[in-house]
Amino acid sequence: MAAERLYYTSAVLDFDTTIADIRLTKTDELGQLWQVALAETAFYPTGGGQPSDRGMLIAYAPSGASLEVPIEAVEEDEDGEVWHYVRKPLIEGTEVQGRVLASRRMDHEQQHSGQHLLSAVFLRELTLTTVSFHLGAESSTIDLDTKERPTEEQLHQVEEAANRVVAESRPIWSRFVEREYAEDMLRRGDLRKLPEREGPMRVVQIQGIEFNACGGTHVENTGAIGAISIRRLEKVKQGWRVEFCCGQRVVRAARKDYIALDAVARTLSVGAADVQARVEALLEEKKAQAKELKKLKALLPPSA
C-alpha cells in the first residue's frame, strides 16, 4: 500500500515510521542512489508546480548509535507511492525517524498559499484566469490567460488587494471530498477545474476567497504568507507571466534591490531617491553629445 501522507492533515515535521521498501535506482559519480518507501511520510513529493521537501531519515541502533541519511529528493510514482531518494541503503522493516527541513517547508507553504491568493485576486479584480504555476528557488510565477498586457496600475491594484487579505489573517483549510461532491462544486462555480484522477480529492479553501483542488502544502492562515510582491511581467506563448514572491523572499528581494540601488546612487553621488532623475539626465546629456559629435564630424574634410 502507498504511504499515508501526513502533510494532508497535519503540520508535523518530525515523525516515526518504518521502512516499507527500498530499491537501488542508479549509480552515478556520487555513488549509489536508493529509493526508500515509508509506511507513512510527512515529506511532500514534487508535483503541482511545487518542489519536494528535503530533510533526513534517522535510524537508531540498540546501542544508541544513530545513522543520519539525508534525503536528496522525493517523488511520487504512477501508482501513488512516495519514494525518498537517499545515498545509504536502509533495511526494510527498520524503524526510523523522519525530519522534514522546516525552513524549506515553510518557504514553500508561503509561496504556494500566496499563489492561491494571488490567482484568486487576479480572477476577482481583473477576471484573469491562472493557467499554470511554478515555484522557483528565488521567485515563483503564474501564467495568466490573456493576450492583453495588464497595466502597472492593474498590477498594483491586485498586489494591494492581495496584501489586504494577508493582513486579515483569514483561515486556510483543507479537506477531502468525493469526486461527485467536487463536481457539484464545479457546477456551482465554487471550483474552477478538477484534476483528471478519480476518487476523493483534496480541496483547499481560503475563507471568503476561493476553493481550489490541490494536493500541496499550505500555511494555516493568510497572515502566515507574510507579504506578496509582484516583481515583473513577461510575455509568454499562453499569455502573460507574473513573477512574484512571498514571505521571507520579499524581505530578501527588497534587501537585494536596496543594495543594488544604493551602489548605483553612490556611484552617481546622489541619494537613492534621485537615481532615476540622475540617470535620465545622463541619458539626455549622452544624446546631446552624440548630436554635437555628428555635427562636428560633418565639418571635417572628406578623407583622402
Rank of each mutant, 00 (worst) to 15 (best):
Q154T: 03
S140L: 08
L101D: 15
E81K: 14
Q110R: 09
V82H: 13
A162I: 03
L118Y: 05
G93S: 04
E138I: 00
P51D: 07
Y85C: 00
H84S: 07
R124M: 05
R164L: 11
I172Y: 08
S103K: 14
S140W: 08
V82R: 10
S139T: 13
A61N: 07
L117N: 11
R104K: 12
I91G: 01
V158C: 11
D79E: 13
D53G: 09
L118G: 05
R175F: 13
H134D: 11
E148F: 09
I58K: 10
D77K: 08
R99Q: 12
E152T: 14
L117K: 13
S132E: 13
A59V: 04
E159S: 02
G98D: 04
V177M: 11
S66T: 03
P150T: 02
D145R: 14
T146D: 06
A182M: 09
R124A: 10
G49D: 11
I71S: 04
S174K: 05
W173Y: 11
R54G: 12
S103I: 06
S113E: 06
L118C: 08
V177T: 04
A137C: 03
H108L: 15
S174N: 09
V100I: 12
T127A: 15
R179W: 05
V96G: 01
H112P: 10
Y181A: 10
L126T: 09
A102C: 03
P89I: 03
L57W: 09
R149D: 00
W83R: 10
V158K: 08
K147I: 00
E180W: 06
T141Y: 15
P150C: 04
Q157S: 12
R170N: 11
L57H: 10
T130M: 11
S113V: 02
R87G: 06
S119L: 01
Y60E: 15
V158Q: 11
L118Q: 06
V86Q: 09
T94D: 08
P89R: 13
E138V: 02
Q154P: 07
S139M: 14
V74L: 02
P70T: 04
A73E: 15
E78S: 09
L155F: 08
E76T: 11
R54A: 14
W173S: 10
Q111D: 13
A167F: 13
I172S: 05
H84L: 09
E152M: 13
H156C: 00
E138D: 09
E78L: 09
S63M: 05
I172M: 06
R87C: 02
V86A: 10
V82A: 10
S66M: 05
R179C: 03
R170L: 15
K88A: 04
D143N: 11
D53F: 12
T130P: 09
A182W: 00
P171F: 15
E78Y: 03
E75F: 00
S119Y: 04
E153W: 10
L126K: 12
F122Y: 14
E152C: 03
Y181R: 12
G114V: 02
E75H: 01
R104W: 12
V165S: 05
Q115N: 14
E168A: 12
T127D: 15
I58R: 12
S139A: 15
D77F: 03
M56I: 04
V165D: 14
W83D: 07
R124V: 00
V96F: 03
